[in-house]
């Protein structure tokens, strides 16, 4: 039997999934801690936005959960994440099309 559908609809979903599993496998947090935090985010989003469709909104909740979990454990900070995000944005805007984008 072949898999009928691609497991991830957007490359960043796959990156985020792999990053989270790698962090947990590496002992940065337990998987039960992850599911508890993720379940709480999903419940909060459902209250605020209504029923989630399990696709884009699901991965948005996943990303928010991971950011919160890492900040709470002092592995990242909101300021650090935003500065790095902005640096990536600048890198994309200043890298000629077709060349690999890197952080300077």
């Amino acid at each position: 039997m072949k898999t009928p559908e691609a497991p991830f609809t957007d490359p960043w979903h796959a990156q985020l999934f792999a990053l989270t599993v790698a962090l947990s496998d590496g002992g940065r947090f337990g998987w039960a801690d992850w599911t508890r935090a993720f379940g709480a985010t999903l419940a909060r989003h459902r209250q605020a936005q209504g029923a989630l469709d399990g696709e884009g909104d699901y991965w948005a909740a996943w990303l928010e959960t991971l950011e919160g979990l890492l900040d709470a454990r002092a592995m990242t900070s909101a300021e650090g994440r935003e500065a790095t995000r902005a640096a990536w944005e600048r890198a994309y805007l200043s890298t000629p099309h077709g060349q690999p984008v890197r952080l300077s």
Partner: peptide, 21 residues
């Protein structure tokens, strides 16, 4: 597109997390 296409906001946030970690 003289520059590279800018990924979506969540995609950039994932890249930021990854490079920091």
């Amino acid at each position: 597109h003289p520059h590279s296409l800018l990924p979506s906001d969540p995609a950039l946030r994932v890249k930021a997390l990854e490079s920091l970690l």
